[in-house]
């Protein structure tokens, strides 16, 4: 299920929404992989409880259980709106594979496949993730970034961090874009990375 709700009168950027609405969309596949220094059963168990690991999405997305085998992903949009997707677990092979599919009411058809493979010669896990995006009726402005390869790779890196070290590591600069507490007040950069 995908719903876009507006808390205030703020709207998705008009031009952005128009571009998204008019842009022809094809099925698109994103894939990325990461090696996690943990045994496959442990990684599999963690993936079965993604609602307890939502920090791997970088704080922008909240994952919660919305019923047996169902997860709801809530994304805070920059426009003060929210977008929600509900994914249903459709395949589950212990320590090998998990697959979720957006429920039929979803405006964004998306399949998520995760395959777990033992890394060569050691008790570590290769996690191969694949997102298949269907034709979206309307992808809210701000949500498109969720479905970029770099974002997927960052998410997998954070998942690896959580499973290997227990949490996502921060620096002041990684939490606070632009001005941050480790910089002198009033003497901060005003642009992108040099």
């Amino acid at each position: 299920m995908t719903t876009t709700t507006t808390k205030r009168e703020a709207r998705p950027g008009l031009l952005g929404a128009l571009v998204h609405a008019l842009r022809p969309r094809r099925r698109e596949t994103l894939s990325a992989a990461v090696t996690i220094n943990r045994p496959r059963p442990e990684v599999f168990l963690a993936l079965q409880h993604l609602d307890q690991l939502s920090s791997f999405m970088g704080g922008a997305v909240i994952v919660r259980s919305s019923g047996p085998r169902r997860l709801t992903w809530t994304l805070e949009l920059p426009t003060s709106a929210q977008a929600e997707w509900e994914l249903e677990l459709v395949e589950e092979r212990p320590s090998e594979k998990l697959a979720w599919r957006a429920t039929e009411r979803s405006a964004l058809p998306i399949d998520v496949h995760v395959a777990l493979v033992q890394a060569p010669g050691r008790d570590a896990t290769e996690l191969h993730a694949r997102l298949v995006l269907g034709r979206a009726r309307l992808l809210p402005t701000g949500a498109a970034k969720l479905f970029e390869k770099d974002k997927l790779k960052d998410d997998l890196r954070r998942l690896k961090q959580i499973l290997e070290t227990g949490e996502v590591l921060h620096s002041d600069a990684s939490i606070h874009r632009g001005r941050h507490p480790a910089m002198p007040p009033g003497e901060v950069h005003h642009g992108a990375l040099r």
Binding site: T35, R122, K160, Q161, E164, T165, L169, S171, S174, L193
Partner: peptide, 27 residues
């Protein structure tokens, strides 16, 4: 260095796989 990743376990601490929150940039 995190001490938990494969690189750290191999004592390749300066290759730690978890300690750079901006990993995307050097990658």
């Amino acid at each position: 260095a995190c001490g938990d990743c494969e690189s750290c376990k191999a004592e390749l601490y300066a290759c730690c796989e978890n300690s750079n929150p901006n990993a995307r940039l050097p990658e």
